[in-house]
Design a protein around this nucleic acid. Structure first.
Lengths: 208, 208
DNA sequence: CACCTTCAATACGTTTTTGTATCCAATACA
DNA sequence: TGTATTGGATACAAAAACGTATTGAAGGTG
């Protein structure tokens, strides 16, 4: 009796999945998920549909895989940055904000895909929980970063959950503005100020 | 010589367009714009595709029309509320926030469509400007409301453009959270507090 | 190196979706 | 009320997209 459900992971398979996933990012960001066909992705990757169906069961699965992979990569790289940052603590609130913004800086392409995925998740019951769980992980990571940073600037977080949620909300809300507004620099500056305001709202002077 | 480009607006035509537009809202929110076919919309409305092609040239046009119509309706109703509010001025900051949130309260269905439209606009050059213009109008309306309200609670807005943009960003960002998080009440409460914080950030005591 | 497995290519039929051209019932108008 | 126009239904052809069954070469295994 052989396991027919999960195919073995050979080198070839890994490479093929890799190219399909990368192509998916390109095509999804250009045409949107809904208007993308299986063939679009395959053609872009230089495969035929045979390759696709041998690696995924549906575009939905592909989209979820792409999204989870990239989200994981983001979290991992963020973790790494945090570790580095421990050797080089922030000296001011402003510097902390800038580091945070730099950390979450994402390219337009990926921002579009995230937006699209959220829209997709909003109408797909199973995905809502997946997104909520992911947001929870981001929230935790964020708080780990903030805890340390706040120490260095002598501040104390008042409401941890609300703080993290506020930062995420502001991040998301300002992202569209930066992509849509004719003057992206102004939007960037406004975003920075808003972040600063949020930090000041959810922290207070720490007893030293 | 008769004008063949713009068909006359007869009663029947108006009614048909109405039903198609309403059905589009339903279907788009259920399946997403990208996965919706012309026939989906027609069937839901009780028409055949003939009706559609006699009223619209493409699904893109339909989507834009739906979005603009609803946005206009929102702006108009908001204007009306503002006029009413003039007879009944706010007495506290908290009350003002609650009114603002009530004003922008939208149903899940429409929230999903707006998200979807934004995703669509982010990759459709022409639509980006349309959205930017719309945001500008919302910003103006918002400031008209705020100017009056701030008077009553004896506050002064420091940076008008940044204030409006911040409120819109926070509104958008917290909307997803309310739709995705397992505990919507907590999200609602956090949203309220965040709004309050933003108001306090972008205002100062007015010289009386 | 010979054998066996794997997996993308190919080929196939089917379903879905599209847009148009034509027709006829509803409706506007005089 | 009679007549002309309008607008949605119908029918049609074409294209797009799907999913599967089969094949053969590449890659792994003993």
């Amino acid at each position: 009796m052989v396991d027919t459900t999960t195919p073995r992971t050979t080198r070839r398979r890994i490479e093929t999945r890799r190219r399909l996933l990368d192509s998916a990012v390109e095509v999804f960001s250009e045409k949107g998920f809904g208007r993308t066909t299986v063939d679009d992705v395959c053609t872009r990757a230089g495969f035929t549909r045979g390759a696709f169906y041998s690696n995924f069961v549906s575009l939905d699965e592909l989209f979820l895989t792409v999204w989870e992979e990239r989200s994981d990569a983001f979290l991992a790289s963020a973790e790494a940055t945090v570790d580095e940052a421990n050797q080089d603590p922030v000296t001011s609130l402003e510097e902390g904000i800038d580091r945070l913004l730099e950390l979450s800086a994402i390219d337009d392409r990926w921002a579009r895909i995230e937006w699209e995925f959220t829209a997709h998740a909003l109408r797909t019951p199973g995905l809502r929980e997946v997104m909520a769980a992911r947001e929870e992980r981001i929230s935790e990571l964020l708080l780990r970063i903030l805890d340390r940073a706040m120490n260095h600037v002598n501040l104390r977080i008042t409401d941890r959950a609300a703080f993290a949620a506020a930062l995420i909300a502001v991040h998301d809300g300002t992202t569209v503005q930066m992509l849509i507004e004719p003057d992206p620099d102004a939007a960037r500056e406004r975003r920075r100020n808003l972040f600063l305001a949020v930090v000041q709202t959810y922290t207070e002077a720490a007893a030293s």
